[in-house]
Amino acid sequence: MFYLCSMSSLEHHIPAERRKGRAAASNDAGRFEPYARVPEHDGWDIPEDLPPIRTELREERATRIITRNRSPDISFDRSINPYRGCEHGCIYCFARPTHAYMGLSPAMDFETKLIVKPDAPERLAAELSRKSYKPAMIAIGTNTDPYQPVERDRGLMRDILHVLSDFNHPVGIVTKGTLIERDIDLLAPMAQRGLVRVGLSVTSLDAKLARKLEPRVPAPQRRLNTIKALSDAGIPVRVMIAPVIPALTDHELEKILAEAAQAGAVAASWIMLRLPLEVAPLFRDWLHRHYPDRMVRVMGHIRDMHGGSDYAADWGKRMRGQGPYAKLIGARFRAAQARLGLADRLDPLDITQFRVPPRPGDQLSLF
């Protein structure tokens, strides 16, 4: 049975046999919830085997699909997120706190209770068709991954790419998912027209560590193979070391860049581990369970870079942190980047080809 308690209660771990393939070990309520559901023995000594936690899908009908932002820390002003939540389950994911806005937990709910926007392609076509619309690159995958496992069945990202291709609209894609290879037949012609670029994230080359950090993400070598497949198809790829985790993955920085460059990546970037809101206690708990001997060192570096806190959201500082350690990582990255001939960013995409395709019944131009 369950009872309601105040949010000051300690977190309760979900039994390991129920959360195989998941990174979070708890499902504490989000920061806006006044109460939490906590398991409590009901007094009956009757064995009860609870089933493994399964992924659930809910549908959301969007009124708008293009999200605007004015952040000075990122290079785009609009994005699309076909899914809320992410089955990849990366324990460090900075998007976890967004689940709290829906009354769901940024912990296990974020990995298992996903929101799907089935009308995203139609809404996108409608928004791009407005006379007031001015084209600029649309970023996809900046919050949750558009190529997470559910995409294999739903195919929303593929339908969105069809729309963007029809409109000759530029798109930048960020993913850890190798399912993007499915869409090379769409992406390659778009790349030839200067309409697409891809950022593929590789956090670690250690398959065992990666499985603990990001349990449902394809293995590191598989992602390197995807960089090669995209590159061979003429699609420009940037390798993203995101995040760099102090005292856990930082020693792999140069090796990741070298392997990605050999696979065909032409640009590279890095982001330091970020622990906003509910992500901080989730990550600390993960460290305690998997790497207790490194917890003091990891969190010590993090706090040194954020003025003694687990995270500071200051513009211009939150992505990289401050202080000697952050400067050291930056210097190592720049040296390896220069040695391997990797650019800071990919070439700008072409917005001049944008056009609204004719619809059935439209009067066509004679010229």
Rank of each mutant, 00 (worst) to 15 (best):
Q192H: 04
S75L: 03
R84S: 08
G89N: 08
Y133C: 12
E60L: 11
R154K: 09
M102P: 01
V163D: 07
F110N: 14
R130L: 15
L195Y: 11
Q148H: 04
Y101D: 13
E181R: 15
E127N: 13
L128F: 08
S105C: 10
Q148N: 10
R64T: 13
F94Y: 11
L124Y: 10
E151S: 13
Y133W: 15
N69D: 06
L179Y: 06
V171F: 03
H162D: 06
G194S: 08
A95L: 05
M157H: 05
Y92N: 09
S105Y: 07
P121T: 10
L128C: 07
F76H: 09
P118T: 02
P189K: 03
T67D: 10
D77S: 05
K131D: 15
K117A: 11
R158M: 06
L179V: 05
P118N: 01
N143I: 13
L114Y: 03
Q148Y: 12
K117N: 10
Y83K: 13
L156A: 14
Y101L: 15
I91C: 14
A136G: 14
A100D: 11
R84C: 03
Y101T: 12
T175R: 01
K131R: 15
D145K: 10
D159A: 12
P121M: 01
H169I: 00
Y83V: 01
T98E: 08
R84T: 05
A139R: 07
R96C: 09
Y147F: 08
R182E: 09
Y101H: 15
N143H: 08
L187K: 00
Y83N: 02
A188P: 00
E111S: 04
L187G: 00
R123K: 14
T67W: 03
P106S: 12
P189E: 02
D166W: 00
G103Q: 06
D183E: 10
R58N: 14
R84Q: 15
E56T: 06
R130W: 02
I66C: 01
T98F: 14
L179S: 02
T112F: 05
R182P: 00
I66R: 02
A107H: 13
A188E: 04
P106C: 13
Q148W: 04
D159V: 00
L57H: 00
R123E: 05
E59N: 08
N143Q: 14
S165A: 09
L195Q: 04
Y83P: 00
K134G: 08
D145S: 10
E181F: 00
P170C: 04
D119S: 13
D166T: 10
P146W: 07
I66H: 01
D77Y: 10
C90T: 07
A100G: 09
I74T: 06
T142W: 02
A139M: 14
F167S: 03
L104A: 00
L128R: 09
I180R: 03
R54L: 11
K113E: 03
A191W: 07
M108E: 11
Q192F: 00
